[in-house]
Computed example of a mutant assay.
Amino acid sequence: MTDDSTAAGPTARTHPPKTAIVTGASTGIGEATARELSRRGWIVYAVARRADRLEDLSKETGAIAVPCDITSEADVSTLRDRVLHEQGTIDALLNISGGARGADWVANAKDADWDWMYQVNVLGTMRMTRAFVPALRENGEGTVLNLTSIAAQRGYEGGGGYNAAKFAEHGFTEALRLEEAEHNVRVVEIAPGLVHTPEFSLMRMGGDVEAAQKVYAGVERPLTSEDVAEVCAFAVDLPHHVNLDLVTVKPVAQAAPHKVLRKQ
């Protein structure tokens, strides 16, 4: 005899829905993660700068669209006040927002590119975390998930600025885990490898479509946004005492950051 309550899988919930904030929700992994958590029955606050895309996501999934620039302290404070007023608490903060600009070697580094990467990947993640840690502590079983990259594990030519930002985010995440363990706040790091998303490489290559396409050329099955989103959702949906401290996710074709199998 089958118990229908368990047969339905991860979408079945018999307890009140949990609340998550997902940044970077207007595109790529952030959008896919907001969709996946909504599918699993979470109340999702979808956060990004592009209001039109968030509204489309909201109509499709029921996620709550909240336009917010995570590099703005005022925007983050307004977001915090709204969410806590409406929900009282949150269960998970998923810092997905991030990105790369430029592929210059360090000798040709552009200040503006490096500054943007540090602002978004590091300081934006810090501001969001700082704003919501008190609520996560009060919750008693809160989770912070930071999306970094295999660029946080090994440097490579042309990656200096992105390496620097993601190494910093990785170090910040390790420190946060140590600091918040006594408050029972679970801290997770997901580090993807090659993911074929609509905008990541296009932004990195300054809008050069041909250069962006070469990043994935010949790779039979790179990761998709949905692949990584499933890992993120799984990590925060696990029983709270189970912590996936660091998960590195690569396509099979990417044996190492510097070794990617490409078919002619």
Rank of each mutant, 00 (worst) to 15 (best):
A168C: 08
G124Q: 05
A131L: 13
E36R: 14
E230L: 04
R82Q: 14
L94R: 06
A25M: 06
L147V: 13
T173P: 01
E182R: 15
D111G: 08
S201A: 15
D237R: 02
A217M: 09
A165Q: 05
E31Y: 02
A92S: 14
D91K: 14
M117W: 09
E141F: 08
G24E: 07
Y162E: 02
A168I: 10
H196R: 15
V249L: 07
E60T: 15
R80Q: 11
G99V: 06
E86L: 13
G102S: 07
R130I: 08
A34W: 04
T143E: 03
G158D: 02
H196W: 10
P192L: 07
L194A: 10
A164K: 01
T6G: 00
V236F: 10
D75Y: 01
A229K: 08
D69P: 09
P10L: 00
I21H: 03
G193P: 00
G98L: 07
Y45R: 11
S77G: 04
D113F: 15
P10F: 10
R186V: 04
H15M: 12
F234G: 00
P239S: 07
I29A: 04
T224Y: 01
E230G: 08
D104T: 09
L238N: 11
A181D: 03
F167Q: 03
L84I: 15
